[in-house]
């Protein structure tokens, strides 16, 4: 067993983007160790088979709620203000399957010590605050980052809602939001998807070039990290140093999504 907890914590998980399922269409999605068929009737009504999982459409995505005990959803999905804000431009999407666990991705957000080595941050990132609140948490990472050879101050605000849905909002010289959704496929693999938005100058041609560069940058930023996730070991008792983020606190927050251990 690679991970000391269940493969699927109870949460809402992103099955498909809404525009991948038009009226009258059916799609098969590998999730939770089985194949889920989602269907959108001509009248727009969604259904899924097996029908054990509550499904919904929110934030231009179709979601399924997983609970091993079959309880109704314990929380609702948070809204994405980027979708209501006309200044945000959708920049693109990333869709990757690899061997890991959804909790690794959640922990990674508050792992401030990894930003320098993995994401080109300059100097030590600091954590503005880490605020867990029931099924959600917020965290603020303050740092400097090299983007295309220039060192710029950056703030990264994370917001998580359950284990499968997070947003990283970068502000500074650039405003970019990355919606990170992770779907457990089976006991070994997850599907990680990014939906990227940014405020870019609305200048014909130029905005297309900037959009392209940013999309490339976001992907280049995580490419190397995927090999890391695939080969790492999950240490239940890591040896931490004073430069580490609130790893154990975020782990404590995660525990609510797993069935209580039969001790």
């Amino acid at each position: 067993m690679r991970f000391p907890f269940a493969a699927v914590p109870k949460s809402w998980y992103h099955l498909v983007w809404a525009d991948e399922l038009r009226a009258g269409e059916t799609r098969e999605v590998e999730a939770f160790g089985e194949t889920i068929t989602v269907h959108r009737a001509e009248d727009g009504v969604l259904s899924a088979s097996p029908d054990r999982f509550p499904i919904c459409e929110k934030n231009e995505m179709i979601w399924a709620y997983y609970d091993p005990a079959g309880e109704p959803p314990a929380f609702a999905l948070m809204p994405l203000p980027e979708l209501e804000d006309a200044s945000f431009l959708p920049l693109g999407r990333v869709d990757r399957v690899f061997s890991s666990h959804v909790q690794e991705i959640v922990e990674n957000a508050v792992d401030i010590a990894h930003y320098a080595a993995q994401h080109g941050f300059v100097g030590q990132a600091t954590l503005g605050d880490f605020a867990p609140e029931a099924h959600a948490f917020r965290a603020l990472v303050i740092a400097k980052k090299r983007v295309f050879g220039v060192t710029l101050p950056i703030q990264l605000a994370f917001e998580y809602c359950g284990m499968g849905f997070g947003v990283g909002r970068a502000t500074g010289p650039l405003t970019l939001s990355n919606v990170v959704t992770c779907l457990p496929i089976d006991a070994h693999r997850i599907r990680m998807r990014f939906t990227i938005f940014a405020i870019v100058p609305r200048v014909p041609m130029l905005s297309a070039i900037i959009a392209r560069l940013l999309r490339w940058h976001v992907w280049a930023d995580v490419k190397g990290e995927i090999a890391l996730f695939e080969n790492k070991l999950y240490r239940e008792r890591p040896l931490l140093s004073s430069s580490d983020g609130p790893i154990m606190k975020v782990r404590a927050w995660c525990r609510q999504f797993y069935p209580a251990e039969a001790a």
Partner: peptide
Amino acid sequence: AHCPHLGAHMGYGGKVVGDELQCPFHA
């Protein structure tokens, strides 16, 4: 191979610095 810190496999992305090995995850 697995770093005692948070478990990264240092054979994937690790770097040689002088005569030492630097872990890819948190260096």
